[in-house]
């Protein structure tokens, strides 16, 4: 038998810990939610437009983020702007994840989940609340949305409201295109915009 130094023996304890840690982290997520401490819960979801990050406060879904936005950066921004009490806690996101899966399977045309729009303010928020008026499978132009929001000349502002939409896919900024029929820009990239509009049968 080899003579182990106690420090080396102690180091060997690390080996079997990760399974236990995963179980304990799930328990922590539940305990923190029960204690009212889970200010931001998040999970990821694999979809035809890549891995989406979903985050929710106690009020509702607060953020959907594409992989190209860098999920670590997005989580840090949520910690800075809402609360550093952020945990991987899939349960709160179950309804959103389930409805998104239905949407991508063409089994759902509208989302029925509570939204927390606190990350959008002022005119941008007005624009986002108007976007729901463009029905599934249809598109509207930036100019039409500006007119509907009561500021027909604020076409560029509508563009930036869409570009900073904290809840893409669920708040359908992908349905806003240019007046000449070109797709315009998209927070998830043009491929994602095309994929969503094709899925909805709009293009």
């Amino acid at each position: 038998m080899t003579e182990n130094r106690p420090d080396e023996v102690l180091a060997s304890l690390q080996a079997d810990e990760s399974v236990v840690i995963d179980r304990l982290r799930a328990r922590l997520a539940a305990d923190a939610a029960d204690a009212g401490l889970l200010d931001v819960a998040y999970r990821t979801l694999d979809t035809p437009v890549g891995t989406l990050l979903l985050a929710a406060t106690e009020s509702g879904l607060v953020r959907v983020a594409y992989a190209r936005e860098d999920h670590d950066v997005v989580l840090q921004a949520l910690a800075d702007r809402i609360s550093p009490r952020v945990l991987l806690a899939p349960r709160r996101l179950d309804p959103a994840a389930y409805q998104l899966e239905e949407y991508f399977a063409r089994a759902r045309r509208a989302f029925d989940i509570a939204l927390d729009l606190r990350l959008a303010a002022g005119f941008r928020r007005d624009v986002l609340t108007r976007l729901g008026e463009i029905a599934y499978g249809h598109t509207g132009s930036y100019a039409q949305v500006a007119a509907a929001a009561g500021s027909p000349r604020a076409v560029r502002a509508v563009g930036s409201a869409c570009a900073t939409n904290p809840l893409p896919v669920v708040v359908p900024c992908h349905r806003v295109i240019r007046s000449d029929g070109a797709l315009g820009e998209y927070v998830g990239g043009l491929d994602a915009k095309r994929t969503l509009l094709t899925l909805e049968g709009a293009v």
């Binding site: 690390q14 990760s18 840690i21 982290r25 989580l75 910690a79 550093p84 952020v86 945990l87």
Partner: peptide, 13 residues
């Protein structure tokens, strides 16, 4: 301030 999830990941073990 880092998300608390990072603290758990770093120091949980």
């Amino acid at each position: 301030m880092k998300p608390f999830d990072d603290v758990v990941a770093e120091h949980g073990a």
